[in-house]
Design a protein around this nucleic acid. Structure first.
Lengths: 148, 148
DNA sequence: TTGATATAGATGCAGTTGCATATATTGTCA
DNA sequence: TGACAATATATGCAACTGCATCTATATCAA
């Protein structure tokens, strides 16, 4: 069991970093250019919208997103201040609350999606055939597996 | 020419984000656990060491790395303060300077590499066959191409 | 019950990043 | 040559992040 990564491994690693840096950068830039909030806001809007009327708990949102607990806490602060979500007391558990999307939040998500979609298409879709995209997704899946 | 990304595209995009987040996180964590500086420092040490005795210009380093100009400027500040690199005046161009690695910098890079290598192997190498790693690298290459 | 431990979430603080802009040269061209 | 644009790098400031820790509530075990 060697510790020295193979050349192909190192290349895959380096390109993983670079590819996501570029793709994310171009997508954030597209949102900003359209005067829209950052990507993380979209994720929150999407998850809270999916969660339905009652919303969901911060810790559930945290699992669905790539955000640490304290970052999520503050992101929700900002989004609530902007009027896109609201915090409601949670009947079941006095420690926590529920985060629910507002009408303004829904509207914002609808505005963001076309820009986001176009940006994904530009950064990823246009650059790969359907088959390549499927293969890429599958290979990246191996890197996401829980197992150590 | 559609703007709606295909399902496979969206999945590839989502996994690209998640896979690099995980991989980078585990590698940074390994470095930190070993009491070593962050990954960006390694990159600077590697590039300055490769550059040879005279070092290189910040703007050259910037191209080799995934860092904005102002971030690099401050990273070099910190690394110089830590004694791993030094700034030297540049004879050719009075606006800039050359960044050269110090002996301590070389030593630090040597200490970091085994930890880094092991972490890459764990995050990427172990999870893919040689062929898969090669394919992944190739597919990610498409996302890095300059063309819009 | 009660005390110990775990969980949900918030927050003060220090370090880092992004943005806009400043500063110092260098290059260019009339 | 002298003005003007371009390039290389730095920096003030505000926003964001990570870390450690705090508060409040829940859970569990004796």
């Amino acid at each position: 069991m060697s510790d020295k990564p193979a050349e192909t491994t190192i290349r895959a690693w380096a390109r993983l970093m670079k590819a996501q840096h570029r793709a994310l950068g171009s997508i954030e830039a597209a949102l900003k250019a359209a005067g829209l909030p950052a990507l993380a806001w979209y994720d929150v809007l999407l998850e809270t919208e999916r969660a339905g009327k009652d919303g969901l708990r911060p810790f559930e949102l945290e699992r669905a997103m790539l955000l640490a607990q304290y970052n999520l806490s503050r992101l929700v602060d900002r989004m609530a201040a902007a009027g896109y979500v609201e915090r409601r007391p949670c009947a079941d558990d006095g420690r926590g609350h529920l985060i629910a999307i507002t009408e303004a939040g829904r509207a914002m998500r609808r505005r963001m999606w076309p820009v986001y979609a176009r940006a994904i298409e530009t950064a990823v879709g246009r650059r790969l055939s359907g088959k390549q995209a499927a293969t890429l997704g599958e290979l990246l899946g191996h890197l996401i597996d829980e197992r150590p």
